[in-house]
Design a protein around this nucleic acid. Structure first.
Length: 493
DNA sequence: AATGGCTGCCC
DNA sequence: ATTCTGC
DNA sequence: GCAGAATGGGCAGCCATT
């Protein structure tokens, strides 16, 4: 059983032509129904713009610069030509389609691309490493695009970049799987739970396609396999927060660190990041801390790893702990230099946690109080900020306060200092440049380059970019407003 | 051996 | 991370 | 309100170049 890549492309094209969610889902349902079960995982991954679940950490390793090089080779054009087209359209896939316009044939051999072939080539690109691998990645992408029609090329390029931009992500795929291969809407929660427990949508799809919904129902949480993390909503008004929480809630320090999901079994400890990368090697100190400080050998915990000054216990800036994330070299040295503390908490599990934890300076429960008045939230917030935290996490303590993966509902709410205007500073900056937008920002600006005036030397010093907070309407006006100030040279100041 | 471009992940 | 938009 | 897609700074590693 095989499937032509053009079949997927057909669906992508139709999805791109609409913004209606129901229609998008229906189109995916039709595709998934026609997909042979042996390759349904591949179709799901490709539609997510990846090849494997996040936690395996296998990346294609192609982004815009390398894709531009490949497209330059395929189209026999200069890289600058491709880059111009990209700037103009805001999407490299669109640029590829335009530059290959009218190309329907697949080279000399009259063979059409299959899903397996596209996946296989991207997989080999992902595998490439070591000296010469950049060239090899480019060459392989070049050959793949060379075999594709212009329309196929558009989506091959977008998939390689990991940005399909179809308005389809995991929740829509789950919806579509429920309708295509199970009993429709009523199956969605079961599928979603399986996804939350496995963190692998391709795996869920495959199990569903080959073994049916009953196999999905038996998915269990497994120590050692990461679960999807619970996310929080944001609110800036303490009153509103308490209303959402039905009057009272647990308020906790929101520590400024790295989120850690720790899996403890009798055999080993495994640590995962928020996107479920395995970061066990980077935190052997936490490994030891957990082994010695937790008297339960089969448990999944979650917490925040925060850099600390061991002599004072003071919490230090996030950037420090991020020096440990992903580090492979000079690890021991960095661990010495940047010790971290782990603050753990789970909803409605505080009492249970207190029983199994040996609290210390380096391993503790998140600082928490129960609140039922807005003023208590503000007082506690002041304390949290004074203690080096970002603000508060407010967690429901009602009977419904379970761990819910994803940003589902209002179980957790974050309340940060920067949401409060009186706790912010303002700065005056001037626009000194702009960057081409991507995707829906194609043809307009993606971000502005801002600078501050330095009176001492009479120069403008660039401070940051600003690419958010624009309404579509604002964004549309910006080029008109700014274009007349555009200069082709670098301003002397 | 040092540096810089690029990519991906953390917030 | 924050912010905006269409459903 | 949900889901998705724009966007930020800053970190490390990998590879190519010098």
């Amino acid at each position: 059983m095989t499937m032509l890549y053009s079949r997927i492309v057909e669906t992508y094209q139709k999805i791109e032509a609409t913004t209606k969610r129901l229609e998008i889902t229906k189109l995916l349902v039709d595709l998934l129904k026609e997909t042979p079960s042996e390759i349904i995982d591949k179709v799901v991954y490709l539609t997510q713009g990846k090849l494997y679940p996040d936690y395996l950490g296998i990346e294609i390793g192609i982004a815009e610069k390398l894709a531009i090089k490949a497209l330059a080779i395929v189209t026999a054009a200069k890289e600058s030509r491709i880059a111009d087209e990209y700037r103009r359209r805001g999407d490299l896939g669109d640029a590829a389609e335009a530059l290959l316009a009218g190309k329907t044939q697949v080279g000399l051999r009259n063979e059409r691309l299959t899903v397996e072939e596209v996946y296989g080539v991207l997989d080999r690109i992902a595998e490439s490493s070591g000296p010469g691998s950049v060239e090899s990645k480019i060459r392989q992408l070049t050959l793949l695009v060379g075999k594709a029609s212009s329309m196929e090329a558009k989506y091959v390029v977008r998939t390689a970049l990991g940005r399909l931009r179809l308005g389809v992500a995991d929740m829509t795929l789950l919806d579509a799987l429920a309708h295509a291969l199970a009993e429709g809407k009523e199956s969605k929660p079961v599928l979603e739970q399986a996804y939350n427990r496995s963190s692998d949508l391709g795996f869920v799809a495959k199990a569903l396609a080959s073994d049916g919904i009953d196999a999905i129902k038996s998915f269990k949480v497994t120590v050692g396999r990461p679960i999807r993390p619970m996310l929080a909503e944001r609110l800036s008004d303490p009153q509103e927060i308490l209303e959402k929480m039905n009057g009272s809630a647990a308020a906790e320090y929101k520590y400024d660190g790295l989120r850690i999901q720790a899996h403890l079994s009798s055999r080993k400890v495994t640590l995962f990041s928020r996107r479920l990368e395995n970061i066990t090697d980077q935190f052997p100190d936490l490994h030891t801390l957990l082994k010695e400080g937790i008297s339960d050998d089969e448990i999944i915990l979650e917490g925040e790893a925060v850099p600390v000054d061991p002599s004072t216990g003071e919490l230090l800036p996030f950037q420090l702990v991020s020096q440990r994330r992903g580090r492979k070299y000079e690890l021991e040295k960095t661990i010495q230099e940047i010790p971290v503390a782990l603050f753990i908490e789970l909803p409605r599990r505080r009492e249970a946690l207190e029983k199994i934890i040996r609290r210390s300076e380096k391993l503790d429960l998140s600082r928490q109080i129960i609140v039922n008045k807005p003023e208590q939230l503000d007082d506690f917030m002041q304390q949290a900020v004074a203690d080096g935290c970002e603000g508060l996490m407010i967690k429901s303590i009602g009977p419904d306060s379970i761990y819910k993966a994803g940003a589902r509902g209002w179980g957790w709410i974050k309340y940060k200092r920067e949401y409060k205007s009186e706790m912010q500073d303002a700065v005056d900056l001037v626009v000194v440049g702009a960057f081409a937008g991507r995707g829906r920002r194609g043809g307009t600006y993606g971000a502005l380059l801002l600078a501050a005036y330095d009176g001492k030397d009479d120069v403008f010093r660039t401070a940051c970019k600003c690419g958010s907070g624009f309404k579509d309407e604002d964004l549309a006006k910006l080029p008109d407003i700014l274009e007349k100030f555009k200069i082709s040279h670098r301003h002397p100041r």
